[in-house]
Nucleic acid binder design. Structure first.
Lengths: 235, 235, 235, 235
DNA sequence: AATGAATGAGTGTTCATTCAT
DNA sequence: TATGAATGAACACTCATTCAT
């Protein structure tokens, strides 16, 4: 019996599979994000990826496979990149804030893909839907870990961790989901720093607040903020 | 030129239009919620509504019209029902908490429809998409008003209102969007009361906290909590 | 669970189903016979039947359904028409010969469809294949009954009935299957009367032979022999 | 202009052509027999034959070539093997019976391939269809010769030879075509010996009958009958 | 006003065939 | 000579929409 998470390819060379799948998935994510899953045709994906229609079926079993791997690719980006940005960050409060910064920065970069995940997870075959949810749970654990360290270290008072983590997740996703509402009113950096004031600071103990005050500023996370950030540093 | 928010009907009797449209839209919302917009066929809607395929085209111009009015119907429920539950509630802090309770209660009742709005707003024609967003902005204003009263009355300290309102909205929507994660762990009533602790209490001034303490309990908002609520009242 | 012999229609009016299915099946039998099952497209069938592609799918579930009902239609013609031609024929030897004449006459009329049955029965879904074989067994029983009466009545000596019946069937089918070999060398009437000499007469008892001698001539079975037959009668 | 019976190869070494074509055709006959011509893919044939897809196109021009040579291969088996089994058999009646035994034995061995010939000859390009029919006529001549010798030698009475030969052919083919009807009821050996009683004995003159009586028994023709046959001999 | 049969453009998918390596 | 990745025309099937009744 086929496991729901497996996607077959007719091609044997695994380096080629990696390369072609990447090429096709990039095109698919772009089009699915812009047009939606059902209104994007295989022919469009082929054209966008610069390959033939037939080739797509050498690397994916059907359209559902493409959606599944597209969503998986997006969620894996979260799981892969947040830890990268946490490397070397030691203090629990710093780690929590950095994780939120990182999550928002990735959402900003993959804004349309993030919306895609909300729109199209339900278009997946049922057995795969839960695999995608597992993937989401895994990225949530990254935030959960940071939050727990803060509480365990006495930097934060006791709260309903489970719920607060979901507030963090929704906050990060909202940057994509409600972009039409924030765009022009808040820069991404402002969005996050204001968010921290609302969702992190109120729960910090005095020990936690002290830590936050001496903390490096999480600037330079967003491409478009770079100039502003360097000007800020200059001062 | 046709305005984007207008939906034509071949039928002239306006009472009939109201009735038939309601009948068809209820079927559509149910099916769109369960199956998604693209995978639901007009024939399915007709069967579910107990009318013929042809009749649907007497009351709606095309499938996009049905989706548009379906989403509008859902959002209008928010706008209509939240004020109803606020009637007679006077104190700003009470009003804010009641609004959140009400919003979550409606989301709980329209759980699948709420998910539908996230999935399918982007499937609308572009000009209508923004009408739906306007509708969302209007329901947000209800929360925004309550929040401002709290701040203006000195019950809450100054915060980024705009962002906090969106956090409230996301919190309410999350009950539907992440239901798979909360279900079994939190009852709807627990979800809201824990949410208030995280998203309202930290911002209350001492005056605000005092008010909250003397406030009626917002029970009886959820169908399934009724028994628990009546028992609570009895005491 | 769907029974393999059932074919669904989206249309409810049963008179219309009968009529449209007949119209489409006649086109399908013609094209399948000429071009084969796999090389005939639904679009060709639609064009030949004078209907749209979509209409075909209102009356048949898929292409396999069309093949199934096409083959069933052909085999039911055998089962329906042979008994008609046997009506009023009393003498066992006469009945046997008449049955063979009738079978060959129908094969001659449905020559291409008979070939179709040999070519395409194996293209059916497995569960339906056996339904078609059951149908064939039923038509064989008609010949089997005639043969048994001859033996039981003492007009024919004991033989391996089972095998002889199949030899009769193969003889009739061969007129279609090997038409390229007989055409131009034998008229249909000659084919049958020569066949009777080989496959019936040798097994007749003297009582049987006497009966055959006084028997009405089975002329007029084939359209194209009519003139010849009437001339023969005139003499 | 290419003659219809010619099949091109890009390879020049004729020994290699022979070998590779045999390897591929064996795979093709097996798959065509099991699955049918149209439902068998070139990729399946390649896999079954243990070669690459590309290689097939080095030895055959297209899929039609493969079918043509597959059918030719089957029919040539008849033409090659029947004479082998007739070698050393002198008496005309014996030769006729032996030919029928041999034909049935080969049909039994190539049962699925025989059905293939009936199913798929019409899938060939028209010009090749007649080449295959010529091939069939050639194998029929083997039986025809035996029958004529019987008649000319006074062992059989005058009959419509042409028709009777086709009865013999149909009888042999029926073992494959109607296998589902005979299987379990008749062993191959019983099938043939009963067939001889119906299709040969009735036409023998008294001289012919005498010859048949003294004739060696045609046992040992079928693999599965071997044990039975050797036991019979022992007596 | 209401029906549902009829339409056909559009889609996912297959597979014979080619060709660079 | 041998490979198998790449191609794209062709097909079965769907479904929003129309229209005669």
């Amino acid at each position: 019996m086929a496991s729901p998470g497996h996607v077959d390819s007719l091609v044997t060379d695994s380096r080629l599979i990696e390369e072609r799948r990447g090429q096709i998935l990039r095109a698919a994510v772009k089009l699915f994000s812009q047009e939606g899953y059902y209104t994007t045709t295989i022919a469009q994906i082929a054209r966008e990826a610069g390959v033939s229609i037939g080739l797509i079926y050498q690397y994916f079993g059907d359209k559902d496979d493409i959606l599944f791997l597209s969503l998986k690719m997006v969620l894996e980006t979260y799981e892969r990149e947040i830890p990268l940005r946490l490397e070397g960050v030691k203090h629990p409060v710093d780690r929590l804030c950095t994780a939120i910064w990182a999550y928002c920065a990735i959402v900003d970069r993959l804004r349309e893909a993030t919306v895609l995940a909300y729109r199209s997870t339900n278009s997946l075959r049922a057995d795969r839907r839960s695999l995608i949810k597992d993937e989401e749970i895994r990225s949530n654990r990254l935030l959960e870990g940071c939050l727990r360290e803060c509480i365990d270290g006495g930097y934060m008072r006791a709260v309903n961790e489970y719920l607060l983590v979901y507030q963090y997740v929704m906050f990060c996703h909202a940057w994509a989901l409600k972009y039409w509402a924030f765009q022009g009113k808040l820069s991404p950096a402002e969005y996050v720093s204001e968010g921290v004031k609302i969702l992190v600071e109120p729960f910090l103990t005095s020990k936690g607040k002290a830590a936050l005050a001496t903390m490096r500023k999480n600037t330079g996370n967003f491409k478009h903020d770079k100039k502003r950030a360097s000007r800020a540093k200059a001062k």
